[in-house]
């Protein structure tokens, strides 16, 4: 079972929901922060020890001695990462998608394996949770490859909670597409609604069941609720705008560790998701 926690934009409380959901349970689970441009799950779930590894990906390096300038590689590359000027091949590693097509097509074996660093992945364990997060290298333009590496530790029967990147762009879709259920965190404001609508459309394209968590539920207006009703989107939790909650958050604390009531609510949220995802399975 894989649950993604997503939001239309950053700063809606997505991380609050994913860390508290993970901490409220007792069964072993993996909590993966796939928001690799701005990971922050580790500020709340702090393993004593983290193992760090650097991830990199294939980019071509041209052996000029062997290359005859035939252009087959540049013609093949869909991403314009290669250009042939005269007999010299120019490589733009930051545009390369690592398909290795250039390497296969080169008749002279002039394309050799180089590498481009994607970023780092840190992994550690905390209570019942194995926590892992990726951090994109500054200057790296593509996050989906690193997101895929973060997700590579998922085994078939795992219970997994994914903190997905905000928005509906390629990285967000990449992070969510493996999941059985998407929990959308939103605020009841006009901006919140606008981004929510886009995200719901994207999740429906992926044909993954979803439900809402409304954060700062008592600010803003009724529009989000009306939208949810119209679209038959279940509202699975409401988190009020309370000073005490904000304080716990700003200290990097967990709601479920400060309040038994919230622990019960978050584990109840999990049970609801479980039931809904199971229903969907039967319905398929």
């Amino acid at each position: 079972m894989i649950i993604s926690v997503a939001s239309g934009k950053g700063g809606t409380g997505k991380t609050t929901v994913s860390v508290n959901l993970a901490a409220s349970l007792e069964t072993p689970l993996k909590l993966l922060d796939c928001d690799v441009e701005e990971p922050n799950v580790h500020l709340f779930i702090q393993p004593d020890e983290m193992v760090s590894r650097t991830e990199s990906t294939f980019v071509p390096v041209i052996d000029e001695q062997r290359c005859n300038g035939c252009r087959k590689c540049a013609d093949l590359c869909e991403f314009n990462a290669l250009a042939v000027i005269g007999e010299k091949v120019l490589v733009f590693p930051e545009l390369c998608h690592s398909c290795e097509g250039c390497r296969e097509i080169c008749p002279e074996q002039a394309v050799q394996a180089g590498s481009r660093e994607l970023g780092t992945i840190e992994t550690g364990s905390w209570q019942h949770v194995i926590m892992s997060y990726g951090r994109l290298r500054v200057g790296e333009a593509m996050s989906p490859p690193l997101i895929a590496r973060v997700q590579s530790i998922i085994d078939p029967d795992d219970l997994v909670i994914i903190d997905a990147p905000p928005g509906t762009s390629c990285p967000a879709i990449n992070a969510m597409k493996v999941s059985d259920f998407v929990l959308l965190v939103t605020e009841p404001t006009p901006f919140g609604l606008h981004d929510l609508v886009l995200t719901v459309e994207a999740v429906r394209q992926l044909e993954i069941p979803c439900g809402l968590v409304i954060n700062r539920a008592d600010i803003g207006n009724e529009e989000v609720y009306r939208y949810a009703r119209r679209e038959s989107l279940p509202i699975l939790m409401e988190i009020p705008f309370e000073r005490s909650i904000a304080e716990i958050y700003s200290r990097g604390g967990l709601l479920v560790e400060h309040s038994e009531e919230w622990r019960i609510r978050f584990s109840g949220l999990f049970d609801t998701i479980n039931d809904r995802a199971a229903l969907q399975e039967v319905g398929r």
Partner: peptide
């Protein structure tokens, strides 16, 4: 219309 690297292709053509 290419997503990225249009300038690289255009430069190759000009050459």
């Amino acid at each position: 219309n290419s997503f990225k690297g249009a300038g690289i292709q255009a430069a190759t053509m000009v050459h």
